[in-house]
Design a protein around this nucleic acid. Structure first.
Length: 487
RNA sequence: GGUCUCGUGGCCGAGAGGCUAGGCACCGGUCUGCAAAACCGUCUACAGCGGUUCGAAUCCGCUCGAGACCUCCA
């Protein structure tokens, strides 16, 4: 597997890039925290899933057998720092006058549709929290047995102080608990917890709760963090390769997952922890609470007033791939326009490669160009560098086309295969073949034929009238050496 | 208030002690009836001020600015 040479992943646990060595030979187990479906995921949410889709795709491209688990949160009692319980799904359900699972189903249908539109590969499995209540209870029991949790009034809390005697709480986020106490802004209503840093594993039911489950501690709901521990363990085992999620989940969610796994099985669930960075709008994180968000569908339909026009999903994907997954990315109209043009340059180059003239030998080093594709992605999935290298390939293709550079048959085949592999399979960009509208196509052929006749007769008035008329209808005619094309 | 991250050319973004990505825009050219498109070429930036070094955008310090987390969050 020469292409896996020096394949490195940035591990949030160590804060360094590490050579990637799977636990089991050629197999990779990857768990990514999915969405809470109380509303439609926004573009920022999608960025994380698109980034992990890139990671999944590249692992597959390198020949790994990957089991990719991404959960759907459809249950869970959440307690904020003020001690107030919030059930966002239940809240949405009451607002929309639906059952909780109806809400989740409704938004899951939309989420699945978005995944298709944005060309995300389906994970191996998308388990739901509500489908794994029993597993969650069993892990809580195990944590209780090990002495790292306690029961109060029908609720179960993780005993952080006890845990800290044996393990390092804060190993991932770098937080020190004694500092945390001072940092926490509000400390009221900590009634049931023994210690402010303790978190709920199981919450006693409230009368207004829409979803309630039975447990050894009475009717209630699982805590937010325990579902991921239960589902990752069930499908990937107690210790697996990669655990991913958005940067904002690092603390407390991922930190608490580690505590739960250590507290029940004695080991950190994942060897590599990966965190994708946020999508920004005007320098600020896109989020529901800031209200600066837009929906992934709005932008491809052009119905958000943030942008003048619609952008295809491909362009958005390409735009996001031009930034590294660990960097924040600013969403602006000019940046999107730049990506759209750049993307069409890339696709034009790719379409041109098939028509290239073959020479006896190549006048440039095709193999090292191809190697640079792998080198980029092997360096912690550096898609921006990959794209830069693909543009270098496009430049060579254009030079070949102009007759300034030569390529051999063998090299042409290599370059074509690898470019297609990286653009389609790794970056997940689908290149829509234009001119495929079944009704429009023959009409356009006729119109362009008439215009060509006019041009041949130097009847510029007619030919320009056709061109301007089509332009008004949104169809751009391009006059090339080998006839005219349109889109 | 605490912890952390980041400030790169007109814009978006990589890089991370010497080899100074890439895209878009601009400008020049080729092509073209004209235009558009396409293609080729040009364009040397790293917040400020100090320091370390033969050499710093990259390391250290300070200042200014932005953001994230500490609450649900992708």
């Amino acid at each position: 597997m020469k292409n896996r040479k020096n394949f490195q992943i940035y591990n949030s646990l160590s804060g360094k890039k590490e050579i990637f060595e799977p636990l089991n030979d050629n197999f990779v187990g990857m768990y990514v925290c999915g969405p809470t479906l109380y509303s439609e995921p926004h573009m920022g949410n999608m960025r994380t899933f698109i980034n992990f889709d890139l990671i999944y795709r590249y692992l597959l491209h390198l020949g790994f057998k990957v089991k990719y688990v991404r959960n759907i949160t459809d249950a869970g009692h959440i307690t904020n720092s003020a001690g107030q319980e919030e059930d966002s799904i239940g809240k949405a359900a009451r607002l929309e006058q639906m059952q909780s699972l109806e809400i989740v189903y409704k938004y899951n249908v939309k989420f699945q549709e978005l995944q298709r539109i944005y060309n995300l590969l389906p994970p191996s499995i998308e388990p739901t929290a509500t489908g794994h209540i029993q597993e969650q209870i069993e892990i809580i029991e195990q944590i209780l047995d090990n002495g790292y949790a306690y029961v109060v009034n029908g609720s179960v809390y993780f005993d952080t102080k006890k845990y800290m005697k044996d393990f390092n709480y804060g190993i991932l986020s770098g937080r020190k608990v004694d500092e945390l106490e001072n940092e926490t802004r509000t400390l009221n209503a900590q009634d049931e917890k023994r210690f402010f840093a303790d978190f709920a594993l199981w919450k006693k039911a409230n009368p207004e709760d829409m979803q309630i489950w039975r447990s050894p501690w009475g009717d209630g709901n699982p805590g937010w963090h325990i579902e991921c521990t239960a589902m990752s363990t069930k499908y990937l085992g107690k210790h697996f390769d990669i655990h991913g999620g958005g940067m904002d989940l690092k603390f407390p969610h991922h930190e608490d997952e580690i505590a739960q796994s250590c507290g029940s099985f004695g080991c950190n669930p994942a060897k590599y922890w990966m965190h994708a960075n946020m999508l920004n709008v005007n320098g600020q994180k896109m989020s529901k609470s800031f209200g600066n968000y837009f929906l992934p569908k709005e932008i491809i339909e052009g119905t958000t007033n943030l942008f003048k026009k619609a952008y295809p999903a491909n362009v958005l994907r390409f735009f996001m791939m031009q930034a590294h997954y660990r960097s924040t990315l600013d969403f602006t109209e000019t940046a999107l326009d730049a990506s759209e043009k750049g993307f069409s340059r890339l696709t034009d180059g790719l379409n041109l490669i098939e028509k290239l003239n073959i020479s006896e030998s190549s006048s440039f080093d095709v193999q090292s160009l191809v190697d640079s594709f792998y080198a980029a992605m092997n360096d912690d999935f550096n898609a921006p560098i990959l794209i830069a290298n693909l543009f270098e390939a496009v430049k060579q293709i254009n030079l070949i086309n102009d007759g300034n550079v030569t390529i051999s048959k063998l090299d042409k085949d290599l370059l074509e295969t690898e470019m297609k592999g990286f653009i389609f399979n790794v970056l997940g960009l689908e290149i829509a073949s234009s001119n495929n509208d079944s009704i429009l196509k023959p009409v356009m052929e006729l119109v362009l034929d008439l215009r060509q006749q006019a041009r041949a007769n130097k009847d510029w008035t007619t030919s320009d009238k056709i061109r301007d008329g089509l332009a008004a209808a949104g169809i751009i005619v391009k006059d090339g050496k080998e006839g005219s094309s349109w889109n």
